[in-house]
Design a protein around this nucleic acid. Sequence first.
DNA 1: CAAGATTGACATTTCAATCTTT
DNA 2: AAAGATTGAAATGTCAATCTTG
Lengths: 140, 140
Amino acid sequence: MTKNLDLFFHIAKLDALLSRKIPLGGLGFSDFVILSHLDRAEGKKLRRIDLAEKTGFTPSGITRLLLPMEKIGLVGREPNPTDARVSYVTLAPGGATLLADARERAEFFAAETVGVAAESDLDRTLALLADAGGRIAWNA
Amino acid sequence: MTKNLDLFFHIAKLDALLSRKIPLGGLGFSDFVILSHLDRAEGKKLRRIDLAEKTGFTPSGITRLLLPMEKIGLVGREPNPTDARVSYVTLAPGGATLLADARERAEFFAAETVGVAAESDLDRTLALLADAGGRIAWNA
DNA sequence: CAAGATTGACATTTCAATCTTT
DNA sequence: AAAGATTGAAATGTCAATCTTG
């Protein structure tokens, strides 16, 4: 079934294009993904390990991406009182502001590129991709 | 429409997972993509600029990716007699051999991860992604 | 020992500038 | 000038090892 591989190729191409072309007002695409996940999380915070699982990045990559974001006040750091191993990442006010602006631009861009598709097709696509992502072991 | 952005997030996550987890027998995912496109091309060769357009990489990235592949004999280089600006990338015998092996592994992996989806859903997904990719300006 | 997080070293890819040919 | 390709410099993210805490 060569269609399965075609799916992979399309994903690779779209990710490359998105990472370079999506207009976010000075925010990187990876940063945008991270802030978006934080914004959706309960309490606007997540463990670093959960952020890695949700985004597909490695824990190491999360640490590296967060470092400059923390430095410029987009995210904060909060310890866990009951388990000193974990440190939460919080959505800082500066991050929320930039995110709001970036999301507006991103929504506009998304409407131009995928907004023309039928909603039922989009639903099926989202379900298929979510399912595929769930079948790829994240760790190990 | 937040679903449009969800699509982007799923794409980013899947690309990250694929790049790290797809088993290709020692071949990198990007190399696999490149060899696959060459294999499908007429005459098993493509201009570098077309390879960039098909994969979503920048022309610069293509040059850099091809350099070690050329060195170990996966791809070859062929000038264009009528236009000295272009140089074709050819699928070399070594590349064809590695590709055949990698494709077998990739197909197996793909069957496990997306092979469970209904074919009609896969078709719609492919159409939607191809369409979206086509709406993102490649150059500029 | 396992889980979460980080670090050093390195691989990958982009950006902006440049070169050559049309 | 525009098109195709390449290069120096830098950003981005991985891998394997390590540290700390449970």
